[in-house]
């Protein structure tokens, strides 16, 4: 593609093109991970759907689910998806303070979501809804718990990324990492939409 005479001039271009190409491959790779995670959740949703009437005489979700807590939980995760978007905008403007601020808000909202989930699980267990009492509650805890574990992983990832940014600033690999985490976080929000719709709201009816 390049002749000897302009090889040096083009070297920089090629370097950028190469980097962009690697970024494309990386994005696609992470996207495939997200899709395979989708399949994991699909099997959990399928199990839940099959078990949705299998109460085995144990307590039913309609008696337990608190719609107000659910609303606050949903608001927290939904807002955190938005604040992550604003953080991404700050990162592209290379504004470290704004990035830090919006990521802290995102992390706190994620943590609040998780705290409410743990409180709720504990409350359910006190009322007699534990994973071993019925097919319904087994699949419920497997599905909602897996989502909760993903949120936990996302929070740990945020902390790790904080140290990466403190060490290397807005390097291209850090930007790449941040965009993967952003994809991961939005994906968790999308899974939560399905969880609150098909597990919680359906369970309340």
């Amino acid at each position: 593609m390049t002749t000897t005479s302009n090889a040096v001039d083009h070297h920089d271009d090629h370097h950028h093109e190469h980097e962009a190409h690697m970024a494309d491959i990386g994005n696609f790779g992470f996207w495939l991970y997200i899709l395979s995670d989708c399949l994991l959740f699909a099997t959990l949703f399928a199990t839940f759907a099959v078990m949705s009437q299998s109460f085995a005489g144990a307590i039913t979700p309609g008696e337990l689910i608190d719609i107000n807590l659910l609303a606050v939980q949903t608001a927290a995760l939904l807002l955190s998806s938005f604040t992550f978007g604003v953080a991404m905008l700050a990162a592209h403007k290379k504004n470290m303070f704004q990035l830090w601020l919006w990521m802290v808000i995102t992390g706190l909202l994620g943590f609040a979501f998780l705290a409410m989930e743990i409180y709720e699980f504990n409350h359910f267990a006190h009322e007699g809804a534990t994973p071993q009492v019925s097919g319904y509650w087994s699949s419920f805890f497997a599905l909602v718990g897996t989502h909760g574990l993903h949120v936990t992983a996302g929070l740990i990832w945020m902390v790790v990324l904080f140290f990466h940014f403190r060490r290397d600033g807005f390097s291209s690999s850090n930007m790449q990492r941040l965009s993967y985490l952003s994809l991961f976080w939005h994906f968790l929000d999308i899974i939560w939409i399905c969880v609150f719709s098909f597990v919680y709201l359906r369970g309340l009816m």
Binding site: G85, L89, M175, S179, S182
Partner: peptide, 11 residues
């Protein structure tokens, strides 16, 4: 697209 690869929208 940004340098990070992922397209980023506006506020």
């Amino acid at each position: 697209q940004g340098h990070g690869g992922e397209a980023h929208g506006s506020l």
